[in-house]
Design a protein around this nucleic acid. Structure first.
Lengths: 216, 216
DNA sequence: GGCTGCCGTTCGTCAAGGCGAACGCTTGGA
DNA sequence: TCCAAGCGTTCGCCTTGACGAACGGCAGCC
């Protein structure tokens, strides 16, 4: 496997952690950490998640069944916890494991048909555009939307942290935040926060779209 | 993906690891481990991934920069490795971190245009089909594919555990495992393991597809 | 046969993780 | 005001993970 060249997807994978021997090829990418960065990243993640839940160190330590001194040191960036310790924290924080070892982020983004970072294949008449790489631990559910012109489909806000990705396959549509929807043609892509009111309205018959619903 | 039925998503989250205090609510799910099970699971994962790559313990240990004795103990189910150790193994094995702490498995699934569980909106001329709910901890990267008829686009296998989802927006294409590709028309959807050889070939000019690359 | 090279395991040592206790701090109620 | 309760940090102690060396087993080759 050595690599991900392969036209389409740059896979992601951890970068070198520390004194490692001859690793096989790997593309480090934004989001990966190396060695000591790793523990710093974990430290930040733990703190972030803990503050998100509003727990104190003492309380979290209690729930996770670890010493609060241990937690204190971890959040301060001192040391290389065991997997059991991390796991316990994951449980207590109610977040999936890997969430603690990789970070986050969202926004509004439009990629017009023909725009975006394109990976042209030399081996075929084929162009792949990375529209959105996956934030760590996000859950992304994939929907197909078949819509006809009609009244606007207004969605009430979803859970905080939700992001929607829309890629129009055929037809035309208006999609995005209710206050500032984007008109999309075939191949157009838009992503926007799902935790504010938003719409999807077909402008032509036979409108086809993919919506990827991302919740962190 | 906790299971292949892929109906709708059970939440994912680690189960209790060991002596933990009062956890907040959480749904344990198949695939999660508790406490000592966790290290057994890690042991199995390491061995599985190592054997997949065909490396010996000694060689893997060398590449990961850890003592082979350490690796031996880990694979035998002894011990609670530190994250750095696990990370180093993840790098050397060329698998994402969480792969070592949660197990695998995928399938092939086709949803033809017009098929699939449809959620009709009463508020608009709008139909949403859930094609694939997100497996726990999966990362899903979204790609747009613009392809023209030409030679077959053959992808070498990606990292183990990868699943690709293809939804055709326009045109026609042949996509799926090299040995058994599926012909897709507008609105058709197929998912298949990305860790076996697979192809994507446009059959008509102006073929547009969305590929969601899922790695666990 | 006997050597060499690699395998995976076991053993003793050392450093580091995890622990509990004690500390200083701020808050809020009697 | 004083005290109690909670917070996060710091300090030894002890356990344990990780290491390197040595071991037995198994080809392959001279």
């Amino acid at each position: 496997m050595s690599d991900t060249s392969d036209g389409i997807p740059p896979t992601d994978r951890p970068a070198r952690p520390s004194g490692a021997g001859a690793g096989s090829g790997q593309g480090s990418h934004p989001g990966s950490a190396t060695g000591s960065e790793l523990i710093g990243l974990i430290a930040a993640s733990i703190r972030r998640e803990r503050e998100r839940t509003g727990l104190s160190m003492a309380e979290l330590a209690r729930r996770a069944g670890i010493a609060k001194s241990t937690l204190s040191q971890l959040e301060s960036g001192a040391g290389n916890p065991s997997v059991e310790t991390l796991w316990a924290l994951g449980v207590a924080l109610d977040v999936p494991f890997s969430r603690l070892v990789d970070p986050p982020r969202p926004v509004v983004r439009v990629v017009r048909a023909g725009e975006g970072p394109v990976t042209h294949s030399e081996r075929a008449d084929y162009a792949a555009t990375l529209l959105a790489s996956c934030p760590p631990n996000a859950r992304r559910d994939i929907y197909r939307i078949d819509a006809q012109p009609g009244e606007t489909r207004a969605s009430d806000p979803h859970m905080t942290g939700t992001v929607e990705h829309v890629l129009l396959g055929a037809g035309r549509a208006l999609a995005g935040p209710t206050e500032a929807p984007i008109e999309l043609g075939p191949g157009d892509y838009v992503s926007y926060p799902g935790d504010v009111p938003h719409v999807f309205r077909a402008l032509e018959p036979g409108t086809l779209a993919v919506i990827v619903m991302e919740h962190i």
